[in-house]
Design a protein around this nucleic acid. Structure first.
Length: 433
DNA sequence: TCTGGGGTCCTAGGACCC
DNA sequence: TCTGGGGTCCTAGGACCC
């Protein structure tokens, strides 16, 4: 049986902010989503205050102010940068590191070794990331991805409740023999299982399945009927039968969405148009950076889902003649779509651009028999990308800009670009003795 | 007043074909 | 009045993840 480790950064966004604000250690800290909308990362002190994940900020603002919570807007550039550093450190411990999300990675530990060797290995990983990068992580080790998730969850819980026995390393949980796996599964509420969401958890509870262990006792047929093959895979994984491989599958993404809520609702076509053109440019830039081309381009616009105004939401997509990642081609396409779906008079709250049918660059010829204009623009796109890489987001499509209305999201509490901007580097005072 | 921005996979049902 | 039994492909929507 193989082993898989899950390395999970603790309260990642909060940890990133604290890294450059050591004065905030042991103080309540939270990070908000884009547009300063919802709570997306909480320190332990904030969790104790009863502030929930995903809660709209305006609802907990008073509690935060009363308790002196330090509140930050999301600084994604900073988090991405620190994430890269963490992942780079992990690659020093294994040939197989699958970056699962910005704050998590599945890692295949060295194959030889006893349980205590694995404990030692996991503790070393944890210690190294903490000392080299300054981010604290939890490490869970078991036989499948879903069990590794269970282990990590348990490690976090133990660290939180300070119930760490002498034989256990802090922030580390290794589950290899069936007895300790069963004990862990019994401690895991059904809703905490990776793959069981807010729809299925209540359904399972009603049927008497309260813990992960309960679920492993149900028959395949029972699970298949109520939870389809996805649920069945989860159950097999909990029983130690691996259904999800670990690896750096360098597979191309299937779709790419770039969207943002407006800082305030907008009514005029020019502003929505500017936003859509902006998203199209961003999509093109990401595609080029990933060496990908697309053929299906879509635009989405919608009013807010809240409030008493009339609702309107629309999404439409077009097939381009050829796969491309050319900014101007994508821009032209989204403008045509927007003209079709835009209806005047609505208070729009969000716009975005989605592309599908993505292929690696070079998979299809990029010019037609009749013209090669797009090929001719490749050097221009390359130049733009180079300038952007060197100087930041300085080149725009003219119609992105709409002087009278800045729709970009609010980021009123953004921290500095400590590691990502020359102008905002952290400063260090050194005392020479 | 104020409610994120990404992704993946599966399924049911319809259109269409023979 | 009576009106088969397959296939395949596509899509929208649902469920999950971070």
């Amino acid at each position: 049986m193989h082993t898989i480790a899950l390395i999970d950064c603790n309260n990642f966004f909060v940890s990133c902010e604290r890294l450059f604000r050591p004065d905030l250690a042991h103080k309540p800290v939270l990070v908000l989503s884009s547009n300063d909308g919802c709570v997306v990362s909480r320190s332990e002190e904030v969790k104790i205050l009863g502030i929930k994940m995903g809660e709209p900020y305006f609802r907990v603002k008073t509690v935060c102010e009363k308790n002196g919570v330090a509140v930050f807007s999301s600084n994604f550039d900073l988090y991405r940068d620190l994430s890269h550093r963490v992942m780079h450190t992990l690659r020093g411990f294994s040939d197989t590191v699958e970056v699962y999300s910005v704050d998590e990675a599945f890692v295949v530990p060295p194959t030889h070794g006893t349980e205590s060797d694995l404990q030692e290995w996991a503790s070393t990983v944890r210690r190294t990331v903490l000392t080299d990068i300054g981010i604290s992580v939890s490490v869970g080790v078991s036989h499948t991805k879903t069990l590794a998730k269970v282990a990590t969850h348990l490690a976090k819980q133990r660290a939180r409740s300070q119930v760490v026995e002498l034989t256990q390393q802090k922030g580390v949980e290794v589950l290899l023999d069936q007895a300790s796996i069963n004990a862990a599964l019994t401690l895991t509420p059904i809703g905490e299982v990776w793959g069981i969401g807010f729809r299925q958890a209540p359904m399972l509870m009603r049927l008497g399945v309260r813990t992960a262990y309960d679920l492993t006792r149900m028959s395949d047929m029972w699970v298949r009927e109520r939870m389809s093959v996805c649920g069945l895979r989860t159950v097999h994984e909990l029983r130690g039968v691996s259904c999800f491989d670990v690896g750096e599958h360098a597979t191309l993404r299937k779709s790419l969405l770039h969207s943002q809520s407006f800082a305030h609702t907008v009514q005029d076509f020019a502003t929505v148009h500017g936003a859509v053109v902006y998203h199209a440019r961003k999509v093109a830039e990401i595609l080029r950076a990933e060496g990908a081309i697309t053929r299906e381009v879509g635009v989405l616009i919608r009013t807010s889902r809240h409030g008493s105004h009339e609702r309107y939401a629309a999404f439409e997509s077009d097939m381009l003649l050829l796969h491309t990642n050319d900014t101007l081609t994508l821009t032209t396409a989204v403008c045509a779509i927007l003209a079709r779906i835009y209806k005047p008079g609505f208070p729009y709250a969000k716009a975005g651009v989605l592309v599908r049918d993505i292929l690696p660059q070079g998979a299809t010829p990029s010019h037609t028999f009749f013209g090669e204009r797009e090929d001719a623009r490749m050097p221009l796109m390359r130049t733009i990308d180079t300038l952007r890489h060197r100087y930041g987001d300085i080149i725009h499509i003219a119609s992105e800009k709409n002087k009278k209305d800045d729709w970009h999201a609010r980021r009123q509490r953004i921290s500095r670009g400590y590691t990502t901007s020359w102008d905002e580097l952290a400063t260090v005072a050194v005392r020479m003795n």
